[in-house]
Design a protein around this nucleic acid. Structure first.
Length: 409
RNA sequence: CGGGGCAUAGUGAAACGGCUAUCACGAGUCUUUUGGGAAGAUUUAUUCUGAGUUCGAAUCUCAGUGCCCCGACCA
């Protein structure tokens, strides 16, 4: 992707109303645009991150240089009045009490399963979706951390026995651990005991990532490392009886519940033998996770994306001084890397100074920076620098492919 | 939903109740520039909306709306 073509550009200053770090950085770097409180458009860079987190790759569109964006489903009336299309009947308006926008899907999945699971031999079953959820938050806040419209993965499991649910519960826990590992925040993410809320059993488990931007408080037992959400924390650790805790602010990036028969009972979800089916549900906020990664992995200069979720792998920057040869050489390197199927953002902008390009690169936070300039070419080299390292080094142009392959191994 | 704050160009700021609403960045055109936020020329506004006070309102008053923060809420 050539940066001169990229929609959109970076901002020098964050909008003054944005206080939260993830909102400031994501808006400044052109990853997202705020339509209204808690409602965001994902611009090309941000959508690439969302897709990475969803682990969905749309290579064909990229090959034809398509730039996908994602716009919110909740849009203000005034915008439609400008085009005169508020009156269009096809547009979904929540003007009656017969329709609600989905904020969770137990009430949908349970009757669906009832219709299609006809025998105990069909169990267990695990069904999930990745979908936009709508919640009329009394107070949307903290950028992507608490929105009114957001992207969430919700998985539901159906079992004949408690033991089977328990087994699966552990498997989901491990799967979630892998997600946070691959997203680069495992070190800061804790598995905490939490309240089950109104519609579950007594306890549930949450994955809590330590950050000052979080709205939860967790207590980590210094003796046995058990972790408790503030809402269920008691004087002494219920695991080892110690009273020595570390208190941390955190954001909930995932949760797993044993629903048991809370929904299967009212919906009369049973096997042909008459056994009431036992359910589990497991949520993971995709867009919140993106915000949490920014909160946790950024520095004074900008974001620092982990390799697996970065919008691009390589930020290739030319510093030409107006020299067409340098531009041509950079273009060649760009093509070499692309032919090796690396995702490259190529800063080919003529009108930008070196300082602007390097600062933009730090802000956007692509893991590997490759700079081509008169200085490097005089030694048949390019300069490479990891976003997480302070120092750069020169490598021969003939070694680029090897170096990059090793870097992303 | 309670409490507090804010609202001027795409972004950030300035302007005592009084001249044509000013500046920087961004963006457009032209010339020169390129290793850590360049130079000059030129262009870029319904001061959130509505009412009111006044000879005169970005500025004062009232109402509304939006945004941010604290709290409450959050399967």
């Amino acid at each position: 992707m050539k940066q001169s073509q990229l929609f959109t550009k970076t901002l020098k200053d964050a909008p003054k109303d944005e206080k939260s770090l993830n909102a400031q950085l994501l808006i400044r770097a052109g990853f997202v645009d705020k339509l209204s409180s808690g409602v965001y458009t994902y611009l090309p860079l941000g959508l690439r991150v969302i897709k990475k987190i969803q682990n969905i790759v749309r290579e064909e569109m990229n090959k034809i240089e398509g730039q996908e964006i994602l716009m919110p489903s909740l849009t203000p009336k005034e915008n439609w009045e400008i085009s005169g299309r508020w009156v269009v009947e096809e547009m979904y308006k929540i003007i009656n009490e017969d329709t609600g926008l989905g904020w969770t899907h137990e009430e949908i999945i349970t009757p669906l399963i009832k219709k299609h699971i006809l025998s105990h031999k069909d169990l267990p079953k695990y069904v999930y979706q990745i979908q936009t959820k709508f919640r009329n938050e009394p107070r949307a806040k903290s950028g992507l951390l608490r929105g009114r419209e957001f992207i969430m993965k919700d998985l539901y499991s159906f079992h004949e026995t408690q033991e089977d649910l328990d087994d699966y519960y552990e498997k989901v826990k491990q799967a979630y651990d892998n997600v946070y590992e691959r997203c680069g925040i495992k070190e800061l993410t804790y598995f905490a005991l939490a309240s089950g809320g109104k519609f579950s059993e007594k306890y549930s488990h949450e994955f809590q990532t330590i950050t000052e931007a979080g709205e939860d408080v967790i207590y980590i037992c210094n003796k046995c490392q058990a972790v408790f959400n503030k809402e269920v924390k008691e004087e002494k650790c219920s695991n080892c009886n110690s009273d020595d805790f570390t208190e941390k602010k955190s954001i909930e990036v995932g949760n797993i519940f044993r629903l048991n028969t809370r929904y299967s009972e009212p919906f009369e979800l049973k096997t042909e033998r008459g056994t009431t089916i036992i359910m589990g549900c497991y949520g993971l906020g995709i867009s919140r996770l993106m915000g949490a990664i920014v909160e946790v992995l950024s520095d004074g200069k900008g974001m620092a994306w982990p390799k697996n979720v970065a919008p691009f792998q390589i930020h290739l920057i030319e510093i030409t001084g107006g020299d067409e040869e340098i531009k041509q050489k950079t273009q060649e390197i760009y093509e070499i890397l692309q032919n090796k199927n690396f995702e490259v953002l190529y800063d080919n902008r003529d009108e930008k100074t070196a300082g602007e390009k390097l600062n933009d690169s730090d802000l956007i936070g692509i893991p590997l920076r490759v700079v081509v300039s008169k200085k490097t070419l005089s030694e048949n080299s390019v300069e490479v620098k990891s976003r997480n390292e302070k120092d750069a080094c020169l490598i021969k142009i003939t070694e680029i492919t090897n170096y990059v392959e090793k870097f992303f191994q």
